[in-house]
Design a protein around this nucleic acid. Structure first.
Lengths: 113, 113
DNA sequence: TTGACATATATAGATTGCCGATATATAATG
DNA sequence: CATTATATATCGGCAATCTATATATGTCAA
């Protein structure tokens, strides 16, 4: 993550699933897309993404298929499954709960005995 | 963390430093306080906190001193240093940047080529 | 046409953050 | 007197991410 390594972890799968909510994407594209949408905050590494995608596939959250572009390059597209959609909802809820809690703590104390 | 293990990591030191911004606290107290302020979202484990505190001490972010309560129990209080205060500012900024970026991604795409 | 670079996917090894289990000692409670 | 709550501490382990490396192909400039 580089900008503040280890600030957050585990949210990458949430973000990747979120990207796939709209359209099927291939790996390299996700890296770019995530970077773009986050205004350069998320610079996901290939070495992080591909194992992560394999994991999501094993869990049945995504399915994969290959497709060759006009350029000749073969790309491995990922598609969000029904289960993946459910997992996404749960992860979004968890994130919101977490972020709100951090917000409350940072907002400042309120009566510390 | 239990409720969604591994959603976030590394933010614990941020939260602990934040607690110490107002008052010196001892470890056990931080666990309770964090739980209270976060409406039960953060249930920091002792096995997580104490090593974390030792690490913050090594980095010079906190100093520690012992004090025996009327009860007779000896408690190890932690005090935020100047360096710790600076580190806290940085971590708060990093968190805000990160949380905003996640928010943008979750808010939904906006034109995916 | 050859060499550098971007695209595209993949794996191995290391680091790190947090947890569970466990240990210790004292105070409060029953 | 025994159990529970307080209080601190360490160890082993898992999971998420990174770095480094490997591979193959397409594009562009020298």
């Amino acid at each position: 993550m580089e900008l503040e390594k280890s600030l957050v972890s585990g949210s990458m799968s949430l973000l990747v699933l979120k990207l796939l909510e709209e359209t099927d994407l291939y790996g390299y594209q996700m890296i770019d897309e995530l970077r773009r949408r986050s205004d350069d905050t998320f610079r996901l590494k290939a070495g992080t993404l591909y194992p992560l995608l394999h994991g999501l596939e094993e869990k049945g959250f995504v399915t994969a298929y290959e497709q060759t572009a006009e350029s000749g390059k073969t790309r491995r597209y990922y598609h969000l499954t029904r289960q993946g959609r459910d997992a996404l909802r749960e992860k979004e809820d968890a994130w919101n709960t977490y972020a709100r809690a951090v917000g409350r703590v940072l907002k400042g104390g309120a009566c510390l005995a």
